[in-house]
Amino acid sequence: MTTLQAALSGALVGGMFAVMAAGLSLTWGMLRVINLAHFGLILVGAYLTFELATSWGIDPILTIVLTVPLMFLVGAGLQWAFDRLGVEEFASLLVSFGLLIIVMQTVSNVWSADFQRMDGDVNPYATESVSIGRFVFPAPTLIAFVFAVVIVVAADQVLRRTFAGRALRAFAEDRTVASAFGIDHRRLGMVLAGLSAASAAVAGMLFALGNAVTPSTPFEWIGMVFAVVILGGIGQVGGVLLAGVLVGTLSAVVSATWSPALSPLVLFSAIILALLFRPYGLLTPAARGAR
């Protein structure tokens, strides 16, 4: 019973990691930008949600109405700059690391280095939960999971069904050919980066819903989120959700049946094993990837 409950809440927590990872995975897979600044955008998203909810009294979930468009512009602008300056994959890792520490310090200057957490009166969700039978679904992570499913399904459909989506996938596979077919990759790239940043705004809101934030919080995410991105298969949003749920569930089950102290040990060992057997992501059989 405890194990099942833990597995359930763990899967929901995995949903939050999936939202954090989705944008990173897409820009990495499609634009070949390893954007560490994505973590900075999530952080800013969390702080904006905190600020808007606390000082303006907006419902924390509704804050994304403001933060999502704002972040879209920031993300698109960053991609414009990356493209304009010709920043390649590895360079993008370093440049965005520079941006990440700039964001962290700026956040610290604006909101202080202390913990910021929405009080119970502005954030009714933190201590709420939904009970079905004997199972309990904690509200913050349940909301995160719903957003994860919506974002992943939407992204997946857009990539499969729309012209822009197919153009992006073509571009990810072969840049020169795609350009030859008249795909305006710059514009598409900016849109994709904008959407990815918008998902960071959502991720930030989701994190703030259940947690206290400090400027150095992003360092707590990097390990787990990268694991989810690579396990899911870079550029594969569906894989990101699957990986998030597996990672969250495994970690929670170990924590409940064995000890929380062992959960990082088991989790990261499992990640290594998964990589050895499925090096191209959980959804891609090794043989297919190799060809």
């Binding site: 690579i230 990082p264 040990l265 990261f268 990640i271 191209y280």
Partner: peptide, 27 residues
Amino acid sequence: RLRSFRGEIFALLTLAVPFILAALARV
């Protein structure tokens, strides 16, 4: 050991190692 092994996988593998060592030392 893996042939046709992508760089990202190696990056993640190595990222996981300090986490495992930290957990081992704490346990």
